[in-house]
Write a protein that binds this DNA or RNA. Structure first.
Length: 282
DNA sequence: AGATCTACCTGGTTGC
DNA sequence: TGCAACCAGGTAGATC
């Protein structure tokens, strides 16, 4: 499931392949994968040139110039199973190939998504300014200072992990990197944010940035579906200390790792290295 | 307003 | 073996 590091890896790969390329044709095979009207999407992007490929949170963003010279923005949210893959050959017509972009160098970009949660969206400059998702998106974790990071959580009563997953609080963190960074910082996922000592919040800032940087360097984490734009798997899943390891021994203290639902998500942690009690509901 | 819960979707896994 | 039940999870939208 692509989170910030995976989308960053995809973005870097696609930048080299797509920048300065022109989209000659757009084939939307499943209209549900396009946010808004699929025909408008097709018309706007046909003949548009990709100027820049980048990332914001978990969103992959392309800046383009349309055939008529207008600035356009193409966004992809991969959600859980979305993939963006380039190829020399026209992609096969699988049931999960939802959008195919023909490029002016004879190559192809396809949006592939088994679970159909992901989407593509094409917006004009005016539209993107008012797009609620981008408008309310929190800061980039790698751009945050320690003080800025600590301020995000001060006085908040929500569970620390719920806030990490909340994209309006901080962008790009999903279940994997939330669990991994909380483990490294020694904070139980269900701890209320305002009860986490300042020193531990400061440590979390550093560990979160480390985990993200290490994952990017390892080409991302491949759980089930993730591959980069060239179809290659990542390697960071081999470095997980808690995520997906319920019942296995902690790599630090050898206690058996526990899991519970926090913010509706399975959360794996070490009750010895991440002490704290889950609040019992009345 | 902040916090919490559910629906969306489908392939893979588990249990009987 | 066959098949139902459950699980994974990011975000929108609803509810408290």
């Amino acid at each position: 499931m692509p989170e910030l590091p995976e989308v960053e890896v995809i973005s870097r790969g696609l930048a080299g392949e797509l920048e300065e390329r022109r989209i000659t044709e757009v084939n939307v095979r499943y209209a549900g994968s396009v946010q808004g009207d699929a025909e408008t999407f097709r018309k706007r992007l046909s003949g548009a040139e990709v100027k820049k490929v980048h990332r914001r949170g978990k969103l992959l963003l392309m800046d383009l110039q349309s055939a008529s010279g207008e600035a356009l923005f193409l966004g992809f949210h991969l959600k859980m199973t979305g993939r963006l893959i380039t190829s020399d050959e026209r992609p096969e017509d699988t049931p999960h190939t939802h959008i195919i972009f023909d490029l002016d160098d004879g190559r192809f970009l396809q949006f592939h998504d088994v679970r159909k949660f992901g989407y593509a969206v094409c917006l004009t400059q005016d539209e993107i300014k008012d797009w609620p998702f981008l408008k309310t998106l929190g800061p980039e974790p790698l751009d945050l200072s320690q003080a800025g990071f600590v301020a995000l959580f001060s006085g908040r009563r929500g569970q620390i992990k719920a806030l990490l997953l909340n994209q309006t609080v901080i962008a790009g963190i999903g279940n994997i990197y939330a669990d991994e960074s909380l483990f490294r910082a020694g904070i139980a996922p269900f701890t209320q944010a305002h009860k986490v000592p300042k020193a531990k919040l400061k440590a979390l800032h550093g560990h979160l940035q480390d985990v993200i940087k290490e994952a990017i360097a390892a080409n991302g984490s491949s759980i089930r579906d993730y591959v980069d734009s060239g179809g290659n798997a990542g390697a960071f899943q081999n470095d997980f200390r808690v995520y997906g390891r319920k019942g296995e021994p902690c790599r630090v203290c050898e206690s058996t790792l526990q899991s519970s639902k926090v913010a509706g998500r399975t959360s794996t942690y070490c009750s010895h290295c991440q002490p704290g009690k889950q609040a019992t509901k009345p």
